[in-house]
Amino acid sequence: MKFLLKLASAIDALTERIGKAAIWLVLVVVLISAGNALMRYTINYSSNALLEIQWYLFGAIFFSCAGYALLHNAHVRIDLIAGRFSRRTQTWIDIFGLVFFLLPMAIVVLVLSWPVFMQAYMTGEMSNSAGGLIVWPARLLVPAGFFLLILQAISELIKRAGFLKGLCPDPIDLDKPSAEEELVAAIKARKDEAQEGGVR
């Protein structure tokens, strides 16, 4: 079990790195979108390639961050019933959901999307739009994203099993503040510091 917990920790570290890297893609998408709009309205120039690269990058953000969302418990949870149970019971519910819903779905999508990517790669499929991009990188995002999601789901299973055996803390720390709450606290702390500096 210790080896499995180390494996889960390594998967978590990989997912964290990929998620933090994907944050920069948001900035890239904004810059491309703004640049494309600026060119369209100032010099009357537009490019299908620039439009498509935005879609590719949106896809990269979505697929690369699916595992990151799972790691940080940022996906939607409807706890009308499960929220009334103990943490151990909720952990068993999570394990059931991971084993019988998330993992089978992700594996099926991975298996079915791989041949689509391979066909696009082997044929050099291009966009139907004039001046568009080659298609296979976008097709690769689907199996790659679901592979990362499968890895993170395995990590979550290991951590939940470890929690049930008393070998690691609860993987879902309900008392831990959300990213939004941390941001609000950081802004408030900065504001308080600025006010104290002004008083001096």
Rank of each mutant, 00 (worst) to 15 (best):
F147Q: 04
I43D: 01
L27F: 06
Q152L: 13
Y68F: 15
A8C: 05
T15F: 07
W55D: 05
R88L: 00
D175R: 13
I158G: 00
I61N: 11
K20V: 04
K6E: 11
Q54G: 05
L157H: 06
Q195L: 15
A37M: 07
A21E: 07
G19S: 04
D170G: 05
L70G: 01
Y121F: 15
V116P: 00
G35I: 01
E180P: 00
F3W: 13
S178R: 02
Q119E: 14
M118Y: 07
A144D: 02
V29N: 04
M118A: 09
I187G: 00
S127F: 02
G131V: 07
I53K: 03
K188E: 14
T91D: 03
K188Y: 08
A161W: 13
Q152W: 12
H75K: 10
A69P: 01
A130Q: 15
G83Y: 05
P171E: 12
M126H: 06
G59S: 11
S127Y: 04
K165A: 15
F62S: 04
W24T: 00
A66H: 05
N36I: 12
A69S: 09
R139Y: 15
A120S: 12
A13V: 00
A130G: 13
E180S: 06
A179T: 05
F147C: 11
V135A: 06
M118E: 14
T89W: 09
S9F: 06
F58N: 07
L148M: 12
V199L: 14
L167H: 07
L51V: 10
E180N: 04
A34Y: 04
F3N: 15
H72E: 05
P169E: 07
L4S: 10
A13K: 13
N44V: 04
D173A: 10
A37R: 02
I154R: 10
D170R: 08
T42G: 05
A34S: 06
S64A: 12
A37N: 00
A185C: 06
L112N: 06
R84M: 01
V184Q: 08
C65S: 15
N36C: 11
P104M: 07
I11T: 03
I23Q: 12
R77L: 08
M39C: 02
L51A: 10
L4M: 09
N128T: 12
D94S: 09
E182P: 00
Q54R: 13
L148A: 09
S86D: 05
G132E: 11
G166A: 03
G198S: 08
G166C: 04
M122V: 10
E196W: 08
A10S: 15
G162A: 04
N128A: 13
N73D: 13
V30E: 02
I150T: 14
S64W: 03
G197R: 14
I32T: 12
A130T: 12
I18F: 08
R84G: 01
L4K: 06
A69I: 01
